[in-house]
Amino acid sequence: MKLSLSQYPEAIAQAAQVVNEIEHRLTEARQHLAHLEGNADKIVAFEANLKNDNQRKARRFEILQMNLEYKRALDVLNRLTTEKANAVARLEHLRNEFSVAKLDRQMAIALKLTGLETRELVGL
């Protein structure tokens, strides 16, 4: 749906707000993942039978893979990342449409002015 020139600023502002809201939810999801990973690190830190970094990394991975909440949080992060990409694409599309609409309007004005000047030169 093509908007009128005066409708674009509001539509662009709304699209930017959607991007900001998704970014906020992404930040929350990242913080939640960091919390879950911190808990896994804490568990690994107190397991004395792990002898080296590779064993600790493998144990951490195992703990996170068994955690259903972690899997759900990763799914949310992936969904929000896709959602943000789509919202940013929509925002850019609106901005580009607005630029084209402004150029079309400027062209129409220029053509009218050119037509008037031509008629004046001819004496009409």
Rank of each mutant, 00 (worst) to 15 (best):
M1I: 14
K2W: 06
S4M: 11
S4P: 01
S4V: 08
S4N: 12
L5S: 08
L5H: 06
L5T: 08
S6A: 14
S6L: 09
Q7E: 15
Q7T: 03
Q7L: 05
E10W: 00
I12R: 10
A13C: 05
A16H: 14
Q17W: 04
Q17N: 08
Q17T: 11
V19H: 02
V19G: 01
N20Q: 10
E21H: 05
I22Y: 01
E23V: 10
H24F: 15
R25T: 00
R25Q: 13
R25W: 01
L26P: 01
T27E: 14
E28D: 13
E28K: 07
A29R: 03
Q31R: 06
H32V: 09
H32Y: 12
A34S: 14
A34Q: 14
H35F: 12
H35M: 13
H35I: 09
L36F: 06
L36E: 08
E37S: 02
E37R: 15
N39C: 05
N39V: 06
A40R: 07
A40V: 10
D41P: 02
D41I: 05
K42T: 11
I43Y: 10
V44N: 01
A45V: 03
A45W: 00
A45C: 04
A45Y: 02
F46Y: 09
F46R: 11
E47D: 13
E47F: 05
A48L: 06
N49H: 14
N49S: 13
N49T: 10
K51S: 15
N52I: 07
N54P: 00
Q55F: 02
R56K: 14
